[in-house]
Amino acid sequence: MVQAVMTIAAEDEAPRVKGRSRLMRSPQFSSFVILIILLAVFAVADANFLSPLNISNMMAFLPELGIIALGMTLLLTAGEFDLSVGAVFGLAPVVVMLLVQNGGVDIGVALLAGLVLCISIGAINGLIVTKIGISSFLVTLSMLLVVRGAALYITQGFPLKSWDQPGFFVTLLAGSFNIGSFRFYTSLWWFIGLSLFAIYILRYAKLGNWISAIGSNRNAAVARGVPADTVKIWLFIATSVLAGLAGMISAFRISAASPVAGTGYELEVIAMVVVGGTALTGGRGTILGTIVGALMLRAIRNGIVLIGVPGLAYNIFVGLIILAMLILHALLQKNAARG
């Protein structure tokens, strides 16, 4: 835990200045504290929460939403968001599997086609948002319908028959391994690797400086020669590709591709990102916060069921906890301004 706290401190802009108070006030730190409290509460309430089986289950599911959340964090920091990620999550594996099963295409070629598809969807989102100037809410909402509709139409609404050839790509994306009595999937490595890369980009790379500046004050960034539109288009593409990757991981893991997979994921992912402390209005983004947010939402969804909250009441709690987190961030932000 001490180590985790220090990592969070390192991500803060100026740990040397007013170090402690700034750390305490940083949104990812407050999210982290709440995560620990939640984990403790669930662990006390139900001994099974920390059992190897339950932890393995949570970790199997975490990367699939977490990977999309990384892209969404960068996009939100640049001041845009993408509602079509859940639909892309569903469409990519459906297209890949259809090509393999009905078209007799090699799996590698099919995956490449899936990648091109995701790039195209992201590029179309980005081009319409930046070049025509329609808000990303409206553009990606329409895209959600188009993409989900396409997945339903080409499958006629039926899930594709299961995938039972373990090959190289399945191992690469959804292989599993055991550590003691824990069972982990390779997707966890993908999540960790991509998280580190995203932290690097946002915090230490020139690109991250541009992303934050664009979301903070687009005109100011453009006036300094920052290619704001190009950056945004590439972020839409990255988010779309990550959604497709997550979809493939999920489909390989459960050996099935369903046209309705990923329904509602867009909001779950955005919740993860903002609960972690990234501002919905752009300019302020934190990848560590998003990782904490992703862990938190997974833990809440899992723990609430375990401690016996009735299934139908479950979203009430999830919603209330998200709301409480956002209120906390808003109060901290108010305090920090001119503090």
């Binding site: 541009w210 500046a213 903070s216 004050n217 100011a220 960034a221 300094r224 020669g225 300019g283």
Partner: peptide, 13 residues
Amino acid sequence: APDLSIARNLFLG
């Protein structure tokens, strides 16, 4: 850009 530090603003772009 208000969300960036002074140093980062000075060298933006």
